[in-house]
Design a protein around this nucleic acid. Structure first.
Lengths: 211, 211
DNA sequence: GACCTTCTCACCTACGTGTTAAGC
DNA sequence: TCGCTTAACACGTAGGTGAGAAGG
């Protein structure tokens, strides 16, 4: 089972470099109703968080891992009658920005030893926020997160080197400034620990507390 | 004014590599009463936090910065009659562990551009906690934090390379599991934001809140 | 009006503090 | 008893949630 796409390949790795998506079941739940991710001026994390496991690297070579988020198509979308529909031509996309994983560079053995998280990446719709750790996206557009692996210990010249690139179909999402689909909201509230305050727990509703 | 000690020196830097201690006044206040740092099983941060500024690096060369904490002498101490006194021979010290600054490696220009903080280092008295980001120390012993600068982008072979080593006399401290000197406690409470809850603010004492 | 964005808010998680009482 | 250590605790800082009202 390997539902990732691999675009570039060089020698020196002992076997096929493979990526596995963590929390795949959760991603699938969101994907089945149409994943939405909120963008704000100051930046908002993704939920589910983007985490992966990697295998097939050379344990003793050094690698850099990065993430980026690219547009899936050239459309703008709207949520109409309970469904997402194309609503005209999309806006121009901002220059692609790589989010370098802070542990980079590190040996293959280190990357393969633990799950790798990009959960600190923040999505923003403000061009002024094009700073470290944030990705500028257009609202109401469809996007695909990707992971890139580069065999190098030179953080400064990554763009010039060959890379392995992976993308998981179930991580595609549409950007919003407020959730459109109630099913998405329910999944977020029920699964994101930071939204626990909005979970309906029978008798302990807000109204009860006010009495 | 340069009260740091420099042990090793190579070529290639355009001028003398110098280190400056941040919050020097605060460190001096603690040092004048005898700085104490708490060690716990799970690990405790240092306060004041260890922050420095560096100058004299080659802006285009890459450097790694690390910190360690070494014993000042071979004594064990006790707090007696309001003063620290030697109380016999010290225990064996644990193997020295370097805390690599997470931004390593980075260019000299990057290091010199901002203050460099090691505030996430945690002090522990438990050998089982000898893991990343923690330093194992013996309680009731006297220690000296140090900073090391190595000109390399190779994180894995740092120990084999020449390094600049700095130490500031006013950062020497004695480890404790509970504060011994009330003056130290007062300074901690009055200066550490996380201890704000213990500050006496006139009428707003705990007893007042209970009424 | 319909749609989308922005801002403030209460409510969480996560964790850094010294205190206190208990343990050894 | 005394000295030192441990664990639970209340009270902070810091920041991630969707809701809801206001704005464009």
């Amino acid at each position: 089972e390997n539902d990732s796409q691999q675009e570039n390949l060089s020698g020196r790795e002992t076997q096929d470099v493979q990526l596995e998506l963590c929390d795949k079941e959760l991603w699938n739940q969101f994907s089945s109703v149409g994943t939405e991710m909120i963008v704000t001026k100051t930046g908002r994390r993704m939920f589910p968080g983007y985490r992966i496991k990697v295998s097939g690297l050379n344990p003793d070579e050094k690698y850099c891992l990065m993430m980026d988020i690219v547009n899936v198509d050239e459309n703008r979308y709207k949520f109409l009658h309970g469904e997402w529909a194309v609503a005209g031509r999309g806006e121009a996309h901002h220059p692609q920005r790589f989010f370098l994983h802070p542990d980079s560079p590190a040996k293959g053995s280190k990357w393969m030893n633990e799950s790798i998280s990009f959960h600190k990446v923040k999505l923003t719709n403000s061009v002024e926020q094009n700073i470290d750790g944030k990705v500028v996206l257009n609202s109401m557009h469809r996007y695909q997160p990707r992971v890139h692996i580069v065999r190098t210990d030179d953080v400064y010249n990554i763009r010039t080197l060959p890379m392995y690139t992976f993308a998981f179909p179930q991580t595609v999402f549409i950007t919003v400034t407020a959730y459109q689909n109630d099913e998405v909201t329910k999944l977020k509230i029920n699964n994101n620990p930071f939204a626990k305050g909005f979970r309906d727990e029978g008798a302990r509703s807000k109204k009860t507390k006010l009495e």
